[in-house]
Measured scan of single mutants.
Amino acid sequence: PDLGLTQLFADPNLIENLKKNPKTSEMMKDPQLVAKLIGYKQNPQAIGQDLFTDPRLMTIMATLMGVDL
Rank of each mutant, 00 (worst) to 15 (best):
residue 42 Q to G: 12
residue 64 L to I: 13
residue 61 M to S: 03
residue 4 G to E: 13
residue 54 D to E: 04
residue 42 Q to I: 10
residue 61 M to C: 07
residue 5 L to I: 13
residue 62 A to I: 11
residue 39 G to T: 12
residue 32 Q to N: 11
residue 10 A to Y: 07
residue 8 L to A: 11
residue 49 Q to T: 13
residue 55 P to L: 07
residue 13 N to K: 09
residue 18 L to C: 02
residue 60 I to C: 02
residue 64 L to S: 02
residue 34 V to N: 03
residue 62 A to G: 11
residue 2 D to C: 08
residue 48 G to N: 14
residue 37 L to Q: 00
residue 16 E to S: 08
residue 66 G to K: 06
residue 55 P to D: 07
residue 56 R to D: 09
residue 4 G to T: 14
residue 67 V to A: 11
residue 36 K to D: 04
residue 18 L to K: 00
residue 48 G to C: 09
residue 60 I to E: 00
residue 11 D to P: 03
residue 9 F to V: 03
residue 56 R to A: 10
residue 57 L to W: 08
residue 40 Y to E: 01
residue 66 G to F: 08
residue 65 M to S: 10
residue 37 L to M: 06
residue 50 D to Y: 03
residue 58 M to F: 09
residue 14 L to D: 01
residue 53 T to F: 08
residue 6 T to Y: 09
residue 20 K to R: 13
residue 11 D to H: 07
residue 6 T to M: 13
residue 32 Q to D: 12
residue 61 M to V: 15
residue 39 G to E: 12
residue 11 D to K: 03
residue 5 L to N: 09
residue 15 I to R: 01
residue 68 D to C: 04
residue 44 P to K: 02
residue 7 Q to A: 15
residue 12 P to N: 08
residue 4 G to L: 14
residue 41 K to F: 08
residue 51 L to I: 14
residue 66 G to V: 07
residue 54 D to P: 00
residue 17 N to G: 11
residue 53 T to G: 07
residue 24 T to W: 03
residue 1 P to R: 01
residue 52 F to K: 15
residue 33 L to V: 05
residue 27 M to L: 14
residue 33 L to H: 00
residue 31 P to Q: 11
residue 27 M to D: 03
residue 23 K to N: 12
residue 37 L to D: 00
residue 6 T to A: 15
residue 64 L to H: 03
residue 61 M to R: 04
residue 56 R to M: 06
residue 51 L to D: 05
residue 53 T to E: 12
residue 2 D to G: 10
residue 18 L to V: 01
residue 9 F to H: 02
residue 13 N to D: 12
residue 20 K to M: 13
residue 35 A to F: 06
residue 49 Q to R: 10
residue 46 A to F: 10
residue 50 D to C: 04
residue 44 P to T: 09
residue 8 L to V: 12
residue 5 L to G: 07
residue 21 N to Y: 06
residue 3 L to E: 08
residue 61 M to F: 12
residue 20 K to Q: 11
residue 60 I to W: 02
residue 59 T to L: 13
residue 26 E to Q: 08
residue 57 L to F: 09
residue 23 K to D: 08
residue 29 K to T: 12
residue 39 G to Y: 15
residue 54 D to M: 01
residue 54 D to A: 00
residue 1 P to G: 14
